[in-house]
Design a protein around this nucleic acid. Structure first.
Length: 830
DNA sequence: AGCACGCCGACT
DNA sequence: GTCGGCGTGCTC
């Protein structure tokens, strides 16, 4: 933008995206002094509302002044080079439109909060204040407190005053000009600092150092520090290498004395300095790992490449243990050599140290890792690493699709069937697989979906020729697929051979396995000890006060917990209704199986892996490592254990409650059951030895189980796809679920009926299901009603249908009696 | 989503 | 009389 002093200077306006769930942009005025520098995608700081200062992203720059209001000025421009690339901005808009949410919500999950600026109101004494006589007693006290501090935040002030509502007093003080409020704006990202030690100038020559050592013969501790230092910095290169120094921890963690070190620092022989370091000790591996593909793998890899010449998207259907990772690595290397970027998505629980270490050995410091357990600062470093071109390849979880890669050549979505790729709690309710495909296509990249149990949707695309299909039916090396056997629980119960919840078949096998020093995995997709507590006298059941579910009995933490709202309560000693002490647990979860196993096999080392034992950052990794190294005989876990973990020594897998998975009331139940059973079974027998999988069931004739037993993906798919076709489910339709929530059941229900009615009028009966009570009809004291829309992909303009839905929701909120009902829209709900 | 403004109950 | 409850409406 050139300036011409003879013409009237143009005033620029920027429409910015704010991190709030309001479905529009806000127009701010661009101050002249950075009008030349502002660009789309740059972060700016703006005031929003009376006291809020927020980070926004420029979405549009124009010269049209708003007509109905006075635009505020942008306060600050944070980036000369835009932080958000045009490619990302496009993607954010696409997500907001497709998933029917606000772009601000997308921005919120996409941009690590370390790149946002936080503002906090601070108050300080007005130095010019000279009317203390105006103050009331309380105010004087507060001013006295304030005098001892440079400034206070609101929260600080509340603590000091000891009252919750200090608002009136603060207002009064501002009115009397006794204090000043201001906004403190700061970047949250903090570089990691390492403290280092080096020789002070003048000691760098080898001669000087020898003299120094000589002079320290009377202070052996100090002398040894200098000698230790020289071990790390060779004397002959002292002059050059001394600048880098060594980590201070070298001296503080060893047996060297702290006081000797500080003496040397005090004497000015050593000096301490600080450097900014990466949070990921970006160590280049000693010997890069060379991946050798088996013939089958090489053939599959070549076939993928060949298919890519015709199709942008290829589905790699490779059975469990077929070694898909090596194929990915081979392809990634090829793409990186071609100069393009690669994004490799994995479900959160599959992104383990074992895979990261392995990839790191191949790709070294070209590779960035993006994990949800990373701190904000770590996320910012990955983000920057990509922008600065250090990372050409990123392996990451769901949210890695938001990283600023703009030259993608390949997007890999491993375990593409995983439903955890779909985010549902806060908006945006996006599916990372589908967004990953969009992202890749937009950048002209190829997309590789991988799974041993592809989703019905993806397999259908492959069957109908939209995706290329590559099949890998052979396990890696000598490994064979395990034998899968159904265990008849009915028969065992009749014969009274059950031990707790274990069939005698499973029990005996575990015992045998323990004797052979082989490992066992027990799968039960339910955490806690038992799903509820029941009174034998009056039949009372532990229930959550806020949700329509029973409270799960957790023995380890000795409490009853609601798995929906997180409510916890103490375990009653007696029935709260009739006072009877005869309380029993009904059903079982991982905790109970763990306990039973420990009781039945007292020498066995049993470990449990579920949400409850993996809450902390490293717990999950620790359990895996422990099991991997043979420190554990039996691993009991929920679906967590089914995801891409490779353990060599597992020869037995026991599966509980398969029936519950199959009969879950949801059209995806059989898909999920097949996937889960196949995936868990796949954990058995990774080496030459053939594994065994025992599935306990009440119905050994169940057709889905039969297909799992013979590993018949095709048969399962053929059956499932015809069901989907007959009942108008995906992939033939798109599902949009609309949930209405309110504290009062009647209000939620009425609003749901009102909305369903409107939708029905236009979309017709076949496309609108419900309203119906949600599966869990009350959560956190709100009653839930669902309306399900089934929209055909071919006959219907889905975009138009979505905007119609939006209009009707807005119309609902225009109605007085329905306006306080919350409406949640989930596009492609899983 | 925040956050302020505004209109009605239980307390100095 | 006021403090303080949360309904409602706006934010460039």
């Amino acid at each position: 933008m050139t300036e011409d002093i003879f013409s009237t200077e143009t005033t620029y306006f920027a429409d910015v995206i704010l991190p709030v769930p309001i479905p529009r942009m806000f127009t701010y005025r661009v101050p002249r002094h950075f009008a030349a520098d502002i660009k789309i995608g740059a972060r700016v700081i703006v005031q929003f509302g009376r006291n809020r200062v927020v980070t926004a992203v420029v979405g549009k720059i124009h010269t049209k002044p708003p007509e109905k209001y006075q635009a505020k000025y942008i306060l600050e421009l944070l980036d000369i080079d835009p932080l958000i690339t045009p490619a990302q901005l496009w993607l954010f808009e696409w997500i907001a439109e497709y998933y029917m949410c606000c772009i601000g919500e997308v921005m919120n999950v996409a941009v690590p909060s370390g790149l946002k600026v936080s503002s906090q109101s601070r108050m300080q004494l007005n130095p010019d204040f000279d009317h203390p006589e105006l103050l009331e007693e309380k105010e004087v006290e507060f001013i006295e407190i304030l005098k001892t501090h440079t400034s206070l935040t609101y929260d600080d002030a509340i603590k000091f005053v000891g009252e919750k509502n200090i608002n009136p007093m603060i207002k009064s003080l501002i009115g009397k000009h006794a204090i000043i409020m201001y906004e403190e704006v700061k970047e949250k990202y903090k570089p990691k600092i390492a403290k280092k030690i080096r020789l002070k100038r003048g000691y760098e020559g080898s001669e000087e150092v020898f003299n120094l050592i000589d002079s320290l013969t009377k202070s052996p501790k100090q002398q040894s520090i200098i000698l230790e230092y020289l071990k790390h910095i060779p004397v002959n290169e002292l002059a050059e290498k001394n600048t880098h120094g060594v980590d201070k921890t070298l001296f503080t963690q060893g047996e060297t004395s702290d006081s000797a070190l500080s003496t040397l620092l005090d004497k000015g022989i050593l000096e301490q300095f600080e450097v900014i370091v990466s949070r990921f000790g970006d160590d280049v591996p000693d010997e890069p790992l060379k991946i050798l593909l088996t013939d089958a793998q090489q053939a599959a890899s070549d076939e993928v490449l060949q298919k890519f010449t015709e199709k942008d998207i290829v589905l790699l259907h490779g059975i469990t243990g077929s070694g898909k990772t090596e194929i990915y690595i081979d392809l990634i290397q090829k793409v990186l050599e071609g100069g393009s970027q690669v994004l490799y998505l994995l479900p959160e629980i599959a992104l383990t140290t074992q895979i990261v270490v392995r990839l790191k050995r191949v790709f070294g410091d070209k590779m960035g890792v993006y994990h949800s357990k990373f701190s904000d600062n770590e996320r910012v470093e990955v983000w920057r690493g990509i922008v600065e071109g250090r990372y050409q390849f990123v392996v990451g979880v769901r949210s890695a699709i938001f990283l600023p890669m703009d030259n993608l050549g390949l997007v890999i979505i491993d375990e593409e069937h995983e439903t955890s790729y779909k985010q549902f709690d806060p908006a945006p309710r996006y599916h990372a697989r589908d967004v990953g495909i969009m992202l890749g296509l937009k950048q002209g990249a190829k997309i590789l979906l991988g799974s041993a149990t592809p989703s019905i949707e993806s397999y259908y695309q492959a069957q109908t020729g939209r995706y290329g299909l590559v099949t890998l039916n052979k396990r890696y090396g000598e490994a064979q697929l395990p034998d899968i056997v159904l265990v008849d629980l009915k028969a065992e119960r009749k014969a009274k051979t059950m031990k707790n919840d274990f069939s005698s078949v499973l029990y005996n096998r575990i015992q045998q396995n323990l004797a052979n020093k082989e490992q066992t995995i027990i799968f039960q997709n339910r955490r806690g000890y038992s799903p509820y507590l029941n009174c034998q006298e009056c039949n009372w059941v532990s229930e959550c006060q806020q949700c329509a579910v029973s409270l799960t009995y957790h023995m380890h933490s000795t409490e009853l917990r609601c798995h929906y709202c997180g409510h916890k309560e103490e375990i009653p000693k007696a029935c709260p209704v009739c006072g009877s002490g005869k309380l029993r647990t009904i059903g079982f979860g991982t905790e109970k199986l763990e306990e039973d196993l420990k009781a039945m096999f007292d020498t066995a080392r049993v470990i449990r892996m579920d949400l409850d034992t993996t809450r902390t950052k490293n717990a999950y990794q620790n359990i895996i490592t422990e099991f991997e190294q043979g420190g554990t005989d039996i691993l009991v876990g929920t679906q967590m254990i089914s995801k891409g973990l490779d353990f060599d020594q597992v020869s037995l897998v026991g599966i509980f409650d398969a029936d519950r998975m199959i009969h879950f009331p949801d059209f995806r139940a059989s898909e999920r059951a097949f996937q889960m059973l196949t995936q868990v079974s796949g954990r058995a027998g990774r080496r030459a030895k053939k594994g065994l999988v025992l599935i306990q069931t009440n119905d050994t004739q169940q057709s889905l189980l039969q297909k799992v037993v013979i590993n018949d993906y095709q048969g399962y798919y053929t059956h499932e796809i015809s069901e989907r076709d007959s009942y108008f489910y995906p992939p033939f339709t798109r599902i949009i679920s609309v949930t209405l929530k309110h504290e009062e059941q009647e209000k939620a229900e009425k609003a749901a009926h009102w909305l369903a009615e409107k939708l029905l009028e236009k979309l017709g009966k076949a496309r609108v299901l419900g309203p119906e009570k949600s599966l869990i009809e009350r959560i956190r004291n709100k009653y839930l009603f669902d309306i399900i829309l089934k929209l055909e992909k071919d006959k219907l303009n889905i975009k138009a249908a979505k905007s119609f839905l939006r209009e009707m929701i807005d119309a609902l909120h225009q109605e007085k009696e329905h306006k306080e009902v919350d409406v949640v829209v989930d596009v492609d709900a899983v």
